[in-house]
Amino acid sequence: MSSSSVTVVEERILQYGRKEKLSWWGKTKNFRTAMLYLFPSILLFSIFLFYPMLRTVYLSFFLTDAQGVASLFVGFENFAYILQSSVFRKSMVSTLLFVLYTVPSSVIIALFLALLANEKLRGIGFFRTILSSTMGMSVAASAVIWLFLFHPTVGILNSFLNIIGISSIPWLLDPQWALISIAITTVWMNTGFAFLVILGGLQNIDQHLYENAEIDGAKYRYQLRRITLPMLSPTLFFIITITFINSFQSFGQVDILTQGGPAEATNLIVYAIYRDAFINYQFGTASAQALILFILVFGLTILQFKFGEKRVHYQ
């Protein structure tokens, strides 16, 4: 990157010298070269991202008929309907709560496990594999496992609670519990990936820093606070952002565990979009919701960068 910017600067200087001689064709040479290099990705992005996005914007202004074809232009009616609808508001609240439940706990648990697994002990490779193993599980498979654990009648969690004298918990049947149950499942699924990334970050920290600190007599907790966490901050920032966006887009576990119920308590926004689009065949309102979700996540991510990135220490 740096060498290319040097050539750009050189070229600019050269161009400045013979400014009046350059035609429009010559002046846009850099731009055209850049476009040539960017062409493959622009093409792919256009086909798989920009076009669908524009279609979504287009559809959000229409009502669709039974075939899913945009047939009636309604302007902002879809948005107005959604914003007034109590179902959508409830869905937003559930989604925000869900993000709140899952993001901090996923990252903290993964960080804790990664710190443990970062110790050099015999057989630590085994634990590292086990702790990151949920990464290899598909959402569907993990959700089905939890479906059996949460089962109201034959679920092992309730049997266990009964053994230690606690009465059964209606995991997926009570609106308050259902969201927590889905959050537990999601945290469990998130941990593997977060663990692996954080462990990688920990291994990247220069060992000399710890050696120096030890010579200075710094204790473990002081090292953790002053060396590990600051040096790990880019990794943590990355994993927080990813987990955050993933949480907003959780779908599979909702579909398998609760189908948005009970009483719409787990009707997270992406599930609500799915339901509108593929069960009710209302692509218009579904697109409008997708756009609102996009704007929301986009805004929150920018805020996160604005305030979070300041605390990040790049080496």
Partner: peptide
């Protein structure tokens, strides 16, 4: 981020 949200949108759109 755009990519991830885009995937979702694309899913909805493909069908349409």
């Amino acid at each position: 981020l755009v990519l991830m949200v885009g995937m979702l949108v694309a899913c909805g759109n493909e069908e349409e």
